[in-house]
Design a protein around this nucleic acid. Structure first.
Lengths: 215, 215
DNA sequence: CTTTGCGTTAACAAATTTGTTAAACAAATT
DNA sequence: AATTTGTTTAACAAATTTGTTAACGCAAAG
C-alpha cells in the first residue's frame, strides 16, 4: 500500500537529494538569515537524514563553501551577461538594479552570508579574484568612462560609482528587518518600497528627476 | 614579588571587569566580525575567567542583548544630537555621514551584528521602536521637506532619502573584506577610500559636482 | 582578630553539535 | 535468484560549548 508512494518519493529524491539539501540550505541561510543553522536544522528543512549532509558534502563547512562558491559564480555570471551586451550604458545599469533587487527579494540575506563567511575566514575572499570578475570590472570601467567623456554624466571614480550602486541595491535587502521596524512598514509595504527603489536608485545615480506620483 | 603586580591588576579589574568584558566583546563582534565567538573566546580576549561572563551577564545571550541595546542607544543618541542642533540641513547630513563612517571604521561589523541578531530573533527589532527614535524620524522628515519646499533639492520621499544615505554609509563598512578583495585595495587604500566617500556620498545625495583631484 | 560580602577561580555536569560507521535498503546487472 | 552499486538510516563516539557550583582570596566592617 505504501509501496507506490514510497517509490515516488524515493525516485524523486534519488535523483536530487544533493540538490535538495543545497536548495533548503539556501532557504535557511539566504532567506531566513539563519546564519547558525545546524546540520540537523538543515536536514530537517530538507526532510532528509542528517547523515546525508555528510555523505554528500563531507562536512558542514564544505557545504557552506559550496553554497558560497555557487552564489558568487551566479552573481558574477549575471553581471557579466548584463555588461557584455550592447545596450546603452544606462540601460545596463537599470537592468543591473532590477536583477539585484529581484534576486535579493528572494534571498535577502545572501549578502549577509557572504559578508559573515568572509569575515570568519578572510581566505575565502579569494573567490572574488577570478579572471572573469576582472573582465567585468574592466568593462564597467570603460563604459562608465565613455559615458563621462561624452558629457552624459558627472565625473566620478569607478570605485565610488560601483560602491554607490551596490550599496543602495544591497543594503535595504539585508537590513530588511531593521528598516521595516524603523520605518514601520509591513511586509507588503516593504515589497512595494523595494520596487520603488529600483527607479529611485537609478535617478539618484544618474542625477535624474524623481518620477511623479510617489511621495 | 608578584604581590604588587597582582594587586595592581586586581584593583584595575575590580573596578571594571564588567566593562572590560563588554569592551572586548565589542572588539570580537564589531571589529573582527566574529559573529560566532564563544564565551571562552570572549573571556580570552578580555583575559578573564570564563565564569565571570556568567557572573556579570548570566548568559551569553544576555551579554549579546546588552551589547545590542547599548549600541542601538548610542546610535540613536548620535542621530538625535545631530538633527536637534540648528545647523543648516545639509551641514547636518555632512556631519551624519562623517560620524557614521568614523564610528564605522572602528567598528566595521557593527551593522552586521545588528542585522544578524535581528534576523535570528525578529523580536529584537523592538529595540528600534522607541519614542526617541520616532522623534528623530519626525525631525528629519520636517527638515528634508523644508529643504525640498525651498527648492534647494529634488523632491524625494523621506524613506528613500534616508535609505539612500544609510546604505551608502554603512554598506562599504560591512562589506569591507568583499570590496577590498574585488577592487584589490590594501588596508590603507581602503581607509583612504572611505575618507573620500564622505564627500562622495554628500555629492551623490545632493546632486553636487564631485570635487576635483580625485579620479 | 573575626566576619561578611564581593569577585574570582577551577572543576564539574549537561546539552548541543559534529562526524563516523555498520547495517539496511532499493534498483540495476549478471 | 544472487550480486553489485549507490543511497539512506539509526546508533554511536567525540568534541565543543554552555551554565553551575563550591571553594578560595581579599578587602572592608564589625
Amino acid at each position: 500500500m505504501l509501496n507506490k508512494f514510497d517509490k515516488v518519493v524515493s525516485v524523486r529524491e534519488q535523483q536530487q537529494t544533493e540538490a535538495l539539501i543545497k536548495e533548503k540550505a539556501r532557504v535557511l541561510f539566504f532567506q531566513k538569515g539563519f546564519l547558525n543553522a545546524t546540520t540537523q536544522e538543515i536536514a530537517d528543512e530538507a526532510g532528509v537524514n542528517r547523515a546525508l549532509i555528510h555523505y554528500y558534502f563531507r562536512s558542514r563547512e564544505q557545504l557552506l563553501d559550496t553554497l558560497l562558491e555557487e552564489v558568487v559564480t551566479e552573481k558574477r555570471e549575471r553581471v557579466r551577461a548584463i555588461f557584455s551586451s550592447d545596450r546603452p550604458f544606462r540601460h545596463k545599469i537599470a537592468l543591473y538594479i532590477e536583477k539585484v533587487i529581484d534576486v535579493g527579494m528572494a534571498y535577502p540575506y545572501l549578502e549577509n552570508f557572504i559578508i559573515s563567511e568572509t569575515a570568519r575566514d578572510p581566505e575565502k575572499t579569494k573567490i572574488f579574484c577570478s579572471k572573469d570578475k576582472q573582465r567585468s570590472a574592466v568593462l564597467i570601467r570603460q563604459q562608465l568612462q565613455e559615458e563621462i567623456d561624452a558629457g552624459r554624466m558627472q565625473p566620478i571614480p569607478t570605485e565610488h560609482f560601483m560602491v554607490n550602486l551596490v550599496s543602495m541595491c544591497n543594503y535595504p535587502l539585508l537590513a530588511k528587518n531593521v528598516l521595516q521596524s524603523v520605518h514601520g512598514m509591513s511586509d507588503t509595504t516593504y515589497r512595494k518600497f523595494l520596487q520603488e527603489r529600483k527607479r529611485m536608485i537609478y535617478c539618484t545615480i544618474f542625477n535624474e528627476e524623481m518620477p511623479e506620483g510617489i511621495s
